[in-house]
Design a protein around this nucleic acid. Structure first.
Length: 487
RNA sequence: GGUCGGUUUGCCGAGUGGUUAGGCAACGGUCUGCAAAACCGUGUACACCGGUUCGAAUCCGGUACCGACCUCCA
């Protein structure tokens, strides 16, 4: 494993050399969706970011166990103490079993992700299937004195924890400042301190999602599932934990606290956070009412969308920005990404067409080095893509006879484009024909048109070209003959 | 209010103390029966004000504006 992968660790705020604790094995946990609604563009970002991390780690030889949860025990809404969660609320409104809601949106999430060519994680645990583990963890935290029970609920004692440990080290906060900044009004609050959070919550009579526990019929707290399931499948300490930046606090901060309080061990070595996708400079979010669902992107049915977008175009669009930068959505940007993507895909066809020369007009070895260097630099996909376009330019120049590529060059370029475009970036040419007979028919029409052109029968040749274009097949005349692509 | 981050050429978006990021769009040219595609060439940008430096868009300080988190959130 001869690489020098550097990962930006949110915990230190620096790029660090990636050293898994038990190579070649890597454990990675990424916060997944709460399944009470369709995934929007924002959900695509962590999915694609960490899918690419997963792909690259595997490519460089690691054996990766990638765990990503499905949250089917709804998090509480912000009038939290009233005790209704998102899934239960949706179930009540639609007169369905909560698990019906969760299953429905889980299925749709999987389909949305499949179209983005996101690989399924190694393990996709459901929160509802790990109530026992969560109860056990809450018990351990109680035993260790970092939690207290009151009225059937269990709360994490942040103040006590902070006496021995550092609550706020991930998000860069000081507990004292947080407390002085939080002026909770609800006099009914059972919590000793506003900064405390629930490990277990007693269910109100109306609450339909509930499980038995030593303390009450209720449900686990907001942050416990990730701690419990990460620990179960990856161990008390694992390599990478990922998620959106908005989860840094309080979710991930609390995860660290819970794990340390329960096991005494630091749970995660490298924390990775992807930035937000914005719309007119504002975060896209369900509660902000500016979220466009992935399905709407695929169909184009949304007032903000000028057209439907290929899921792979969305993937490419996201990969054209670094995962730690915000990315601003617009039709113009997405359309530009789509054109660039078509240009990138065309190189595969061009590589088949060009004739090998005796000399090398392009430094293929240097190109390969630069590509790996880009990925090793905290998964810098936009720089990788820039290098790929440099190579595209060289291949096109070779096609037009401006430079020469040796047969070794061509073979290596084919190999590298396959690795980086398909295997690592996870792009897939959905517009490529999969039907041999279709390909043959198009080739026949091209031949007929070629003959017509030879006979100067331009009426016929233009008719073939125009009619094919109307049917979605675009002909491209070149020196070496005519090629085609789907529109 | 607190904490953190951003401001790059028409748009998206990298990066860096002195050398072309890249994509899209635009303009000129080559090629072509025409068109498209492709190729060649063109843009000399880094919010503002100071400072450090031989040299800063890149480092430091300040100002303005924008955003994220502090409450569910990818």
């Amino acid at each position: 494993m001869d690489n020098h992968l550097k990962i930006f660790n949110s915990l230190s705020g620096k790029k660090e050399d990636f050293e898994p604790q038990a190579p070649p094995y890597v454990g990675m946990y990424v916060c997944g969706p709460t399944v009470y609604g369709d995934a929007h563009l924002g959900h695509a970002r962590p999915a694609i970011t960490f899918d690419t991390v997963f792909r690259y780690l595997k490519h460089t030889g690691y054996k990766v166990r990638y765990v990503s949860n499905i949250t089917d025990v709804g998090h509480l809404e912000h009038d939290a103490d009233e005790g209704e969660d998102k899934i239960a609320k949706k179930a009540r409104l639609e007169s369905l079993e909560p698990m019906e809601i969760a299953q429905y949106y889980t299925n749709r999430y999987h389909e949305d992700m499949r179209r983005l060519n996101v690989l399924r994680p190694s393990i996709e645990p459901h929160a509802s299937g790990h109530i026992m583990e969560q109860i056990k963890m809450a018990e351990e935290i109680l035993e260790n004195g970092f939690a207290y029970e009151i009225n059937g609920s269990v709360y994490f004692d942040v103040v006590k924890y902070n006496e021995k440990h550092d609550y706020g080290k991930l998000s860069g906060r000081k507990l004292e400042e947080m407390i002085s900044n939080t002026r909770e009004l609800s006099g009914q609050d059972e919590k000793r301190n506003p900064a405390d959070f629930a490990l277990w919550k007693k269910a109100e009579p109306v609450h339909i999602m509930r499980w038995e526990s030593p303390w009450s019929d209720g449900f686990p707290g907001w942050h416990l599932e990730c701690s419990a399931m990460g620990r179960k499948y990856l161990g008390e300490s694992f390599d990478i934990h990922g998620g959106g930046m908005d989860l840094k606090f309080p979710h991930h901060e609390s995860e660290i606290a819970q794990s340390v309080a329960a096991t005494g061990r630091e749970p995660v070595r490298y924390w990775m956070h992807n930035n937000m996708i914005t719309l007119n400079g504002q975060k896209m979010g369900k509660s902000l009412g500016n979220a466009v669902s992935l399905r709407q992107f695929y169909s184009g049915e949304h007032p903000l969308l000028e057209q439907a977008y290929d899921p792979i175009t969305i993937r490419f669009f996201i990969l054209q920005a670094h995962y730690r930068s915000t990315l601003d959505f617009s039709n113009e940007a997405l359309q530009a990404a789509d054109k660039g993507l078509r240009k990138l895909f065309a190189v595969f066809q061009t590589l088949e067409q060009i004739e090998a020369g005796d000399t090398s007009g392009f430094d293929v070895a240097g190109f390969e080095k630069k590509c790996y260097a880009a990925m090793d630099d905290d998964f810098n996909t936009p720089v990788l893509i820039a290098h790929l376009f440099d190579a595209v330019k060289a291949v096109n120049a070779a096609k037009d006879g401006h430079i020469s590529l040796s047969s070794t060059d061509i073979e290596n370029l084919k190999r590298l484009f396959n690795i980086f475009v398909f295997e690592i970036l996870g792009l897939v040419n959905t517009q490529e024909s999969k039907h041999e007979s279709f390909d043959k028919i198009i080739q026949l029409l091209i031949d007929i048109r070629q003959e017509a052109r030879k006979n100067k029968n331009f009426t016929l040749s233009d008719k073939i070209r125009d009619e094919l274009k109307a049917s979605g097949v675009i002909l491209k005349d070149g020196k070496e003959g005519t090629s085609w692509t789907l529109a």
